[in-house]
């Protein structure tokens, strides 16, 4: 049986400094039974092999030049896209709960977006997620989040001008 592959190119997201994990899991969950995923990335995505392996996918990776990689994720005997059957993944790779707090910081002078985000994180409970919109990648915020043990995922929206960051309170503490 030949497998039909759905293409997903996360190279633009990676080159913009973004985190494509949510995009990839979204694409995997949207696959029809029997469909595979053809992923294009700027590096060999080793962590994904384990995560998608736990969902029953086998992988085949090859370098396609310029440092880029093509990975074919083929569904095994187990039906694809059944996250409830997957063993518990590491805290950094599981699904995050919906954001309990949203902020639009796009019209604030720097470093006010950082000040407000850190103030908000101090008032939230462990495991809760904060979603903030920014007009650029918050380069000075990220080390501060790391120091405080929070996990984050961020990427530019398709419009290329809004940066969306999700912060999970104390999310990096369990992973450490």
């Amino acid at each position: 049986m030949t497998t039909a592959f759905v293409d997903l190119d996360v190279r633009p997201t990676l080159r913009a400094g973004g985190e494509p994990f949510g995009e990839i899991i979204g694409a995997v969950n949207a696959l029809a039974p029997g469909q595979g995923l053809r992923l294009l990335a700027t590096f060999k995505p080793l962590p994904l092999f384990q995560v998608l392996g736990s969902k029953g996918f086998t992988h085949e990776a090859r370098e396609i030049g310029g440092g880029d990689w093509e990975v074919l994720f083929t569904p095994g005997d187990a039906p694809a896209a059944q996250p409830q059957n997957a063993p518990a993944a590491a805290p950094s790779t599981d699904e995050w709960p919906a954001a309990v707090r949203e902020m639009d910081n796009r019209d604030l002078d720097p470093p006010e977006p950082m000040v407000r985000i850190l103030a908000a994180t101090e008032a939230m409970q462990a495991g809760e997620v904060l979603c903030a919109l920014l007009c650029r990648e918050p380069m000075f915020l990220l080390p501060e989040l790391a120091k405080r043990g929070h996990a984050w995922r961020g990427a530019f929206e398709p419009d290329g001008t809004t940066y969306r960051i999700l912060i999970r309170i104390d999310g990096a503490k369990g992973a450490a």
Binding site: A119, A120, E122
Partner: peptide, 19 residues
Amino acid sequence: FLTWLECYGPVLGKVDAPR
């Protein structure tokens, strides 16, 4: 900016800090 970040970055949101 760099002086502010160096001095107050670690306590932002935890205590009152200047702008």
